[in-house]
């Protein structure tokens, strides 16, 4: 990454308990989560988190329930104070902020979408969407004009005067998204924003987010425990376990090179052909001359299997924006479809 990170987390630790600072040295010495709880009665929430989030990208933080995802995302706007470490936003350490600066950060630079929507039940959809702007002191009429625009954008035109409880879960979360977008903040924090929704509506919402992101290029921090969702949305994937980062990087890379049994378990039961893309499996063109056809670097492997009719002897030229970038041999493709180490109990972690 050559650009300056929009959000940069450095050496972040969070210990829950009566005297977290006193526990730091033990944690620096590498005491585990279980031992810390057993011997000192403190919960190790996060340990040595280092993540850079590039501007305009979606960083997905994935992990099982209790792995510290919510704790981590709440450090970005300091809803939770860290025990040690730094959180830099546009190069400024937000931990140095005083109350007024912190409020400005929350009002102008960051917005948040919540798993349980967290809308104001006594306010209309329009008033909810306008909340961020009203909080920072804009005229109600102006704020509501902007809010109405975003409600329209997320497909809620005509529902302005409804109350949240009159809407379905999916629609309520659209209000949540409109509320976040209406604040015009660069950074959007989404804590399991779609986890409470039915699968079909969830897919709709993911598509909506991708579509919005296409034109808005916000820096999105998205939390999920669902690998399919993570792979669909992530530019950068961070996998969290017991409060530490197991692996982070380009999602396709993690999928092909999991460095931990925890991740192998995660990735073992997904449809790899649908998730993996040609660009992740292709090889450089080293003299290969006979191609069965031309494919796009961003095609998924499922599509290639269909094109090839299952013939493993085929090779295809890979192009991106009309330029040759590599070659895809069907043999490599088949190999990529098998997880690195097949897991024996693949369902335990879901």
């Amino acid at each position: 990454m050559s650009k300056q990170a929009k959000v940069s987390i450095k050496g972040l630790y969070k210990i829950f308990g009566a005297t977290p600072e006193a526990m730091l040295s033990a944690v620096y010495d590498g005491i585990g989560k279980d031992d810390l709880l057993e011997q000192h009665g403190h919960v190790l929430g996060l340990q040595d988190i280092n993540v850079d989030m590039a501007p305009g990208e979606t960083t997905v933080i994935m992990g099982l329930s209790g792995s510290g995802k919510s704790t981590l995302i709440r450090h970005l706007n300091r809803l939770i104070e860290p025990t040690a470490g730094e959180v830099l936003i546009d190069g400024e350490n937000v931990l140095d902020y005083d109350e007024a600066q912190l409020r400005r950060l929350r009002q102008e630079k960051m917005s948040m979408v919540f798993q349980k929507f967290a809308l104001l039940p006594h306010r209309t959809v329009l008033q909810n969407a306008a909340m961020a702007r009203i909080v920072r002191g804009e005229e109600e009429a102006d704020a509501e004009k902007a809010a109405a625009k975003w409600l329209d954008r997320v497909g809620l035109a005509g529902f302005e005067d409804h109350y949240p409880h009159q809407l379905s879960g999916g629609m309520q979360q659209r209000v949540g998204i409109a509320r976040a977008l209406a604040s015009d903040s660069d950074i959007m924090l989404m804590d399991e924003a779609f986890s409470a929704l039915d699968p079909l509506i969830r897919t709709d919402m993911q598509d909506l987010l991708l579509e919005l992101q296409e034109e808005l290029h916000k820096t999105i921090v998205f939390i999920t425990h669902d690998l399919d969702e993570a792979l669909k949305l992530a530019d950068h994937l961070v996998i969290l376990k017991d409060g530490y980062v197991v692996q982070q990087g380009e999602p396709q890379h993690i999928l092909l090179n999991p460095n931990d049994p925890y991740i192998e378990d995660f990735v073992s039961d997904i449809n790899r052909a649908r998730v993996l893309r040609v660009r992740s499996v292709m090889k450089p063109i080293n003299g290969t001359t006979s191609f069965e056809g031309v494919v796009d670097a961003d095609d998924n492997l499922e599509k290639l299997i269909e094109i090839s009719g299952g013939d493993t002897t085929h090779a295809y030229k890979v192009q991106r924006d009309g330029e040759d970038v590599g070659v895809l041999k069907m043999k490599d493709l088949v190999r990529a479809l098998v997880p690195a180490v097949p897991s024996s109990d693949e369902n335990t972690l879901r």
Partner: peptide, 23 residues
């Protein structure tokens, strides 16, 4: 009062006055 709503109010930078009278 729902903790999630209070958290949302904090996340959007409400002052404690706004939170008290608005939420």
């Amino acid at each position: 009062v729902d903790k999630d709503v209070i958290e949302a109010a904090d996340a959007f930078g409400m002052t404690s006055r706004q939170k008290l009278f608005g939420v």
